Simulated scan of single mutants.
Amino acid sequence: MKRAVYPGTFDPPHLGHLDIVKRAVRIFDRLVVAVARNPRKNLLFSVEERVDMFSKMVEDIEAVEVRDFDGLLVDFMKKENLEVIVRGVRLFTDFEYELQIALNNYKLAKVETVFMMPSQDYIHISSTIVRDIASYCGCLKGLVHPYVEERLREKFGCR
């Protein structure tokens, strides 16, 4: 059984993330979405809120489990017996950064990284853009799951 991890801060999770999950479960038997605590980032949602939102997005995908983690990803992978890292890349600049991380993860623990691009329908979406639109109470249709939209509207006091 091939088990992979899809790590990130997912602040908030969006449809591009969900697209990567749906594509990854066609390749791997089990996928753990690992939501990073990452206290060094100024995050909009707590780790518990991010796990809740992502869990709601994937509740009908049996092969997916959403968990939080803290520390090095490779340590989490060893503890959970995960073999491969799945990373979504949208642009060449994303790839450059992700390649550095992948090379270091391989050096640290000999784990492989698989890079996946979201479909053209979602390649333009980022959590930063979603947060910006939500902060102005803008339309989030086609960017996030309805539950995530609800949580964003609550967070920014939108009606």
Rank of each mutant, 00 (worst) to 15 (best):
V114K: 15
E48R: 10
A36K: 02
D132W: 12
V47D: 10
E59Q: 15
V66H: 03
M53W: 02
N38E: 09
V47W: 08
D70Y: 12
K41R: 14
L108K: 02
I85G: 07
M57I: 09
G16T: 07
F54S: 03
M77C: 09
V130G: 02
D19R: 02
R40L: 14
H124M: 13
F92G: 00
N81H: 11
V74I: 15
Y97M: 12
H14F: 06
E65R: 14
V32G: 02
R90Y: 08
F54M: 12
K110A: 11
V111T: 09
V5A: 10
P39D: 09
S135C: 06
I27D: 01
S126D: 10
Q100R: 15
R30L: 06
T93H: 12
V21A: 10
F10Y: 13
R37H: 15
A34H: 13
V84P: 03
D11N: 09
K22A: 01
P118D: 07
K79V: 05
F28M: 08
D60Y: 07
M57W: 03
R131L: 02
K56Y: 06
E98F: 05
L91C: 01
R30V: 13
K78F: 12
Q100N: 14
L73Q: 12
D29V: 01
A102L: 10
F54Q: 00
E48P: 02
A34F: 11
K110W: 02
M57C: 13
Y122V: 03
V58C: 13
R50L: 05
E62C: 11
V74Y: 14
S127Y: 01
G16S: 12
D68P: 12
E83V: 00
G88R: 02
V111I: 12
I61W: 04
V35S: 00
M77A: 08
A102V: 08
I27G: 05
E98P: 10
I133S: 00
E48Y: 05
L72A: 13
D29M: 04
E48L: 03
M77D: 08
P13E: 03
D132Y: 13
V111E: 03
D94N: 11
N42M: 07
L99K: 12
H14I: 06
V111N: 03
V74G: 10
A24H: 05
I133Y: 00
L82Y: 08
D75I: 11
D11A: 06
I133G: 03
F76M: 06
G88K: 01
R131Q: 08
L72H: 12
S135G: 06
L15Y: 07
I129D: 05
P12S: 12
G88A: 10
S55C: 01
T128A: 13
P118A: 04
N104W: 07
Q120T: 05
S55H: 00
Q100D: 15
K22C: 06
L18R: 01
L99W: 09
P12G: 04
P12I: 10
N42D: 15
L99V: 14
A109Y: 04
R90W: 01
R26W: 00
R40K: 15
F45N: 08
V25F: 09
D132C: 00
R87I: 04
A24E: 11
P7D: 04
G16L: 08
R23C: 03
D60E: 15
F28L: 07
V51S: 09
A134V: 08
R26N: 13
P13V: 15
K110G: 11
V66A: 05
M117K: 05
M77L: 10
